[in-house]
Simulated assay, not measured.
Amino acid sequence: MDIDTEKLKRWREERFWSQEHLADLSGIALRTVQRIENGGNASRESITALAAAYNVDAAALTFAPEDIAAEAAKQKIEKSKSALHLSFFIVAASWAFVLIVFAGISLSDGPGGDNMTVPAIWMTVGMAGHGLAVVIVELVARFGAAREG
């Protein structure tokens, strides 16, 4: 079962209990308490014993399914934002490279060789559009975080 190790440790420290004292109260091994507090898995029996030591229901020590789903959704959003940022930097690098190629083509055409100006403008418009998408996603994420907090 997924136990909320931060809550377990915080409750122990708020009561000024040592890990040894918690192990004695719950009737489980000190090493088990240490392993659980360090993020290890806990058996149903260990969670029940720890809950009895704290005089709470066992569910109070575990993560609620809503919390797990919310954390997974948050991680998915962060991963998507990171991918969007990476794609923007790839597009920016490609844009710079293409503009250099376009400049070389225009210079090789001789005087008045501006036949690559229009494609360069459209490449810049595309780049700006991608940048705008990144800015909008960031603003929405910050606004959403500000509303929740």
Rank of each mutant, 00 (worst) to 15 (best):
I68C: 05
T124K: 05
D109C: 11
A92C: 12
H21W: 10
A70I: 01
A145E: 11
G131Q: 06
T5F: 01
R35S: 03
K74T: 03
D4T: 00
K9H: 12
A51G: 03
T32Q: 09
N115M: 07
G27A: 08
E37I: 01
V135M: 14
F89A: 11
G39Y: 04
A52D: 02
A29E: 14
T62F: 01
D109P: 00
E148D: 08
A96C: 12
A83T: 09
R15F: 12
G40W: 01
R10V: 11
V140T: 06
L30T: 04
S46C: 04
V125H: 04
S18V: 11
P111R: 13
I105N: 03
V33K: 04
V137F: 11
A59T: 07
T5I: 00
I90L: 14
G113K: 10
L25Y: 02
R35K: 10
G113N: 07
N38I: 00
A51Q: 06
K81N: 15
V137W: 03
G129D: 06
A52R: 04
G113E: 09
D24P: 04
R12Y: 07
G110R: 05
G27W: 03
K76H: 14
V135N: 02
A60Q: 12
S108N: 13
F102A: 13
G144V: 03
R10T: 13
V140G: 01
